[in-house]
Design a protein around this nucleic acid. Structure first.
Lengths: 233, 233
DNA sequence: CCACATAATTCTGTTTCCTTTCTTTCCCGT
DNA sequence: ACGGGAAAGAAAGGAAACAGAATTATGTGG
């Protein structure tokens, strides 16, 4: 009961509701709540309850849930309802396999298509990442890491790729976030990012792809290890 | 007016509506109508009209449209409505770039993970493809071509990849379909498919990836040429 | 004390209605 | 005659109502 009230406050809809369809606001709110773990995997999402929490009727909630389903963040059981979808280790591996292929493509295309301004933008993103690892707020690090990868895919000039990659990033956000609490890998992460950055700047597609593949592979290895050792406890 | 009635009949909802949420039936119907070109790019989708056509109220229509939007098949103008989204040549190129990377991954993984039963299934799919090119019904060829690619991604044992690839295939279905009307490329297609098939059977990942990349590259080249020469007319 | 069946409650699926926003058309002024 | 603005109409956005299925609770029999 008290928890619900807490969530109500936490899930208040941000910013400009004006001229923005309610369903989109709800969509963003729910998505954020899931990604940050406020709504936990397996938790049941009842429409009336969410409606009360966000102060809307069921209609926008329903539409938002349908959208979340297509993004894979909730699972709908026909006739029963929706629940936040958890992920098995196998699911994570699937996502990481796809991500590996697409981050390679992203880095490769970026190395060929990046403009001068984007180069400075990418450098700034890299520096921001390095800086926030020094400070150590894992929430911010996840954010800035995402910015770096997004800067690359922007330079790749392929919006379809960008959409898909961002969707995949959301899929694993929860787990990546958990893994970033550990700072033993920060130095490695910086090195890997630098390597990708250098290859893209040099316009060396082969090298950029290789660096990206390597980066994802190491990240996956680390995540996998973390999750497995957590399970043993 | 008469057109509308025609569409009504064409868009009747197929199969087991029982125990299937109406929105999904609507979703499938609309999707098919768009992919087969019954609903043309730019055409406006008004909820009441579609509701009358399919014999439902607006709600299932709305939810289906939201889902179609996330799949990129319709575009929503806030407050105004939804329309079937067309594709520029640049959009197509974006899709093909991503598809190239993922079909490579698909073939590569399949070469490592395919089971004995799946091998025979893939062989059957290949033969079915060859057979339908002899008959020459472009509708069926597109279907069977899809089956072949789906058999591969099934063997790759990665459902996430499968979902994304099928989504991409839908994106370009209309255009691929158009291009298959031309039978000058059938022989090449068969050769390329055979090459992928052989590499997967041999368990040669490198070779499978190369064959897949080659296949997509040639398909794209052909599509691009077709579209450009159509525009010139 | 537990298992099974039945009833009550809750939640989804769908329809219907009201409100808000956009679009189009028509009229008035220049 | 042409352009701008206001009003009417149409369509989406949102809320509430209704029906049916699912889950939970309750009670009875073993």
């Amino acid at each position: 009961m008290g928890q619900d009230n807490n969530l109500t406050v936490e899930m208040s809809m941000t910013g400009d509701q004006q001229s923005m369809p309610l369903r989109d606001a709800v969509f963003v709110s729910l998505r954020k709540a899931i990604l940050t773990g406020k709504l936990k995997p397996g938790e049941r999402l009842t429409e009336v309850k969410l409606g009360k929490m966000l102060g809307t009727s069921r209609t926008p909630i329903r539409e938002a849930i349908r959208m979340l389903e297509l993004e894979g963040l909730v699972a709908i059981v026909p006739g029963s309802g929706a629940k936040v979808s958890g992920m098995t280790l196998e699911d994570l591996q699937e996502v990481m396999e796809v991500r590996s292929a697409l981050e390679q493509l992203s880095a490769g295309l970026a190395s060929e298509r990046i403009t001068q301004e984007e180069k400075t933008g990418l450098r700034d993103a890299l520096n921001a990442f390095i800086k926030s690892t020094r400070i150590g707020d894992s929430m911010e690090i996840a954010e800035v890491d995402g910015k770096f990868h997004d800067a690359i895919v922007k330079a790749a000039k392929n919006e379809k790729l960008r959409t898909i990659l961002n969707g995949l990033a959301d899929n694993i956000y929860r787990y990546r976030y958990e893994c970033l609490r550990d700072d033993e890998r920060y130095e490695h992460l910086i090195t890997e990012h630098k390597e990708i950055y250098k290859a893209i700047l040099a316009g060396d597609r082969e090298c950029a792809e290789k660096a990206a593949r390597n980066h994802i592979a190491l990240q996956w290895e680390f995540m996998r290890g973390k999750i497995l050792e957590e399970k043993e406890q």
